[in-house]
Design a protein around this nucleic acid. Structure first.
Lengths: 233, 233
DNA sequence: CAGTGGTCTAGACCACAAG
DNA sequence: TTGTGGTCTAGACCACTGG
């Protein structure tokens, strides 16, 4: 018998969760159906449904109509990665953020970028190179291609003043994106810009964002040595 | 007038989403309250609630009692990172997976690992070094510390045969974990094991998992050059 | 076919926090 | 104080899919 009543969906969720963690219900096991659990917990089926859906979203349960609800065979393999706005990431550490535009031009993107963005060969984009600094030390180097056809307002913006990422966040909504994380050795220009030595291991984040099907921007962020990206399961 | 009826929560979600994407509702804007939207869409308030909660979970809306619902100022900054089981990651690419245990011993973990795991100084852990291979080529080097107090059954397992990660997934549930991603240059032993050269940039994933408050395992995966981690917003 | 989860509804009450 | 979201309930019907 439990002392605490199980009369809200979060209580149901933690009860079910603890049964999974206790291994009272093991990976692969079929658990009772919603109606039975509602009866047991003394609440409505909708409440049980809410709790089980939350657990299924977190990857702890597998649910299928008619087949019932099972404890997931391979529990929680999802982590939520918070994509930081670099300014915030730096300011959260009580460091001073600054931003410097290195160059800005209109040009046809190279084939690899064009392929990533899914653009026609003739499309011109704006290329922005910029440096983000923390306490006046190089933090990340930004190499961005911006589809001006998709975001015409961008051509009127002065990116000397406006941080491109922050401007886009406010002015160019996107619906989808993909991110690739990797490591690379610093080449000569990277080493110079980031004030490090050639060959250093750098953390790289490539990000492509789209609005419905049209590419907005493709950005490569190359971080100064020592950068870590943290996340929680 | 819309042709399609908005009578389920997913329809409400996409309608609201498209108003955000249209910039009919801009970042920072207050949107109508649930009751009004329910009236407009011709559905129950609970249905609207479901839709708006889903959007809020995705970071597109900020909701506060009494203050109402606003379009998020900094939309979608969350990506879901799927933590792969290395075997699956390799087999999905139609490569042959193999696994080799390099060494296994019982020892007190070094202070940095102990701190990460939050263990007392006297606790002994099992250290496992292993190599994951794809098509017989080194793929990732695994350096794992396993809290045998938390998972006593582990001491009886033969990790020559059983891949530690897969065994733990099936036998040691965890409730929380944190992940750190970084880049480093290969040192001599890493270069040797991964069959690469000293100084190469390697992608590193450090993962700590706990069951409630007790540390289960701390694992460092060092990937062979060229590794990329992909994810979607 | 029939059992399971998925969802809607109308109404109700509660918890929180802005003014 | 009071408007807002958060949640519960009971009952209903639907959608999917296993056997």
């Amino acid at each position: 018998m439990n002392n605490a009543e199980i009369n809200n969906w979060q209580a149901v969720r933690s009860e079910v969760l603890s049964r999974i963690q206790n291994r009272q219900w093991k990976p692969g096991d079929l658990i009772p159906n919603e109606a039975d659990l509602a009866l047991e917990f003394g609440c409505a089926r909708a409440t049980v449904n809410r709790a089980l859906q939350a657990l299924a979203e977190n990857g702890l349960l597998d649910r299928r109509r008619k087949a019932g609800t099972r404890v997931a065979l391979h529990p929680v393999r999802k982590a939520t990665l918070h994509i930081p706005i670099i300014r915030h990431e730096i300011e959260d550490r009580k460091q001073a953020y600054s931003y410097a535009l290195i160059s800005s031009k209109l040009d046809k993107p190279p084939p690899d970028i064009r392929a990533q963005m899914g653009l026609r060969a003739t499309v011109e984009c704006m290329q922005l190179l910029a440096l983000h600094l923390a306490d006046s030390r190089p933090y990340a180097y930004e190499d961005r291609w911006l589809n001006v056809e998709a975001v015409p307002a961008a051509s009127k913006v002065d990116f000397e003043i406006n941080n491109a990422n922050e401007w886009l966040v406010m002015n160019a909504p996107f619906t989808a994106g993909d991110i690739t994380l990797s490591a690379k050795q610093a080449n000569a220009p990277e080493a110079k810009i980031l004030r490090t030595t050639i060959g250093q291991a750098l953390f790289v984040m490539d990000r492509n964002t789209r609005n419905v099907d049209v590419a907005i921007t493709s950005v490569k962020l190359t971080f100064a040595p020592g950068y870590q990206l943290q996340t929680t399961i």
